[in-house]
Amino acid sequence: MVSDPTPSCEFVADVLAGRTRAVARLMTRAEAGTDECRPAMAEIYRHTGRAHVVGITGVPGCGKSSLVTAVTQAIRAEGRTVGVVAVDPSSPFTGGAILGDRIRMGDLVGDPGVFIRSMASRGALGGLARATLDAVDLLDAAGFDIVLIETVGVGQDEVDIVRVADTTVVVSAPGLGDDIQAIKAGVLEIADLHVVSKADRPDANKTVTELKQMLMLGLRDAASWRVPVIATSAETGEGIAELLAAIDKHRTHLSTDGNLADRKRRSAEARTLKIAEDLVRRHYAARRDAATDALIDQVSNRKLDPHSAARQLLGTLNSEITS
């Protein structure tokens, strides 16, 4: 809540030492969007890049939370540590949110090697919240080996996760016939791994076959990563070990064929542009005065074209943003 009596910078050492309270508190401040936490977050950023960031996405009801829980348990069984950032949608009407992913992650609570953070999307599109990556940075810097991002289960037309995760897992549930079509349209090509959840259901095999057929149609060149389709059941544990092995293998693949650097760079670019865009929007929203109103009026009255107006606007905002 509100401005902080403890300067955020004082938390940095504690975050790097992996202290839960400091990690959690700095996440809250980053999420609140206070500029005061920026120096601390800048320092944190210099200590990131070590964790394997895995995005898990899929339509609502496909079993993402259960899968995250099962995968986390498998990772923990090997002794590695896990951070989880679970994003749920905010209400477009009230701005509030009910974040329910923890219901399914109950078995993970109490293990110091697991840190779970629920986050509201707050109107952001693409399945992530604005502060999701700040949270990922904090978990990375705090020393968690793998960071899982569970995206909002929205339609998959705009998927940010692929631009920021090292490995993207797309989850489909059996029996969601129409959604297969949606997958075909948008998500097929973004997946590094496909998971068909609820494999204990009778119709799971059909979905696996359908997905495999679609993947054949869009076959990439032989040297590149072959996207596996893995059937899992969070209930029986089927396929979870296989999935974890595939996640690890993908990371190895990235680092051996040089793609990892490309991905990291792609992520840096996407993130920087996104923040720039947000900054412009926020500063514009905060400013909104007679001068900007007049500018918009001119465009509205056809006295000025929108391109010229945008350039003028950027000129005006520029000094404020960079000061």
Binding site: S90, S91, F93, T94, G95, G96, A97, I98, L99, G100, R102, I103, R104, G106, S118, A120
Partner: peptide
């Protein structure tokens, strides 16, 4: 939980 959300808060429900 619903009322708090409708009042604009972020509500984490653990079940």
């Amino acid at each position: 939980a619903r009322c708090l959300r409708d009042a604009g808060m972020d509500v984490i429900y653990t079940g």
